[in-house]
Amino acid sequence: MVLLVVDSSYVTVYCKDNKILDDLYLNAIDKGFENVEYITDENDFRTRLSVW
């Protein structure tokens, strides 16, 4: 699982486990978060992830 937070308001979660990902998605919707959407190969503009 990878959690990216930018400016404390833009959050991206990458997760390989579909069950956990679905639970996170539904929880975010339930808690009233806005603009919640799945990241797919078609809509992900990131081509690399670098950690330092």
Rank of each mutant, 00 (worst) to 15 (best):
C15S: 02
M1I: 05
L3K: 14
D22S: 11
L4W: 07
G32M: 03
K19R: 11
V5T: 07
V6G: 02
L24F: 06
E42N: 14
L49F: 13
W52Y: 12
K31P: 00
V2R: 03
W52G: 06
R48I: 05
N43G: 05
I39P: 00
K19T: 15
K19E: 15
K31T: 07
V51H: 06
L3R: 12
D44N: 15
D17W: 00
D30I: 01
T40K: 08
L4S: 13
T12E: 12
L3M: 08
E42G: 08
E34P: 00
I39Q: 02
N18K: 09
L3I: 15
L3Q: 12
E42K: 15
S9W: 04
D23V: 02
V5H: 00
Y25P: 02
I39H: 00
I29G: 04
Y14I: 13
F45I: 10
V51R: 13
V13P: 01
V51A: 09
D44T: 13
T12Q: 11
V6K: 11
S50K: 10
D17Q: 09
V2K: 06
L3D: 06
T47F: 02
Y38W: 05
Y25F: 15
L26D: 09
V5D: 01
S50D: 08
S9I: 04
A28E: 08
Y14P: 03
D44L: 04
L21R: 04
Y14D: 01
L3T: 11
N35F: 12
I20V: 14
L3A: 10
I29T: 08
L21I: 00
A28G: 04
S8M: 11
D22N: 09
K31D: 10
V13W: 00
L26P: 00
Y38C: 03
E37G: 12
D17I: 01
L24I: 15
V13Y: 00
L49D: 11
E34W: 02
V2H: 01
V36P: 02
L24P: 00
K31Y: 03
V13E: 01
C15D: 12
V51G: 03
D17K: 11
E37Q: 12
D44W: 04
L26S: 08
E37H: 10
V51C: 05
G32Q: 12
G32Y: 02
M1D: 07
L24Q: 01
S9V: 08
I29L: 11
A28T: 06
F33N: 06
L21N: 03
K16G: 14
D7R: 11
T47S: 07
R46F: 10
Y10H: 11
D23G: 05
L3E: 15
K16C: 03
E34S: 04
T40C: 08
L24A: 09
R48Y: 04
I20D: 14
F45C: 06
E42T: 14
N27K: 14
R46K: 11
D7Q: 13
N43H: 09
D23P: 02
T40H: 06
K31Q: 10
T47C: 01
T47P: 01
C15F: 00
V36C: 01
Y10A: 07
V36T: 03
T12H: 06
E37L: 06
L49P: 10
S9K: 12
A28S: 14
A28R: 07
K16Y: 01
A28W: 10
T40G: 06
S50M: 14
W52N: 09
W52T: 07
T47N: 09
V51L: 11
F45N: 05
D41E: 13
D30Q: 09
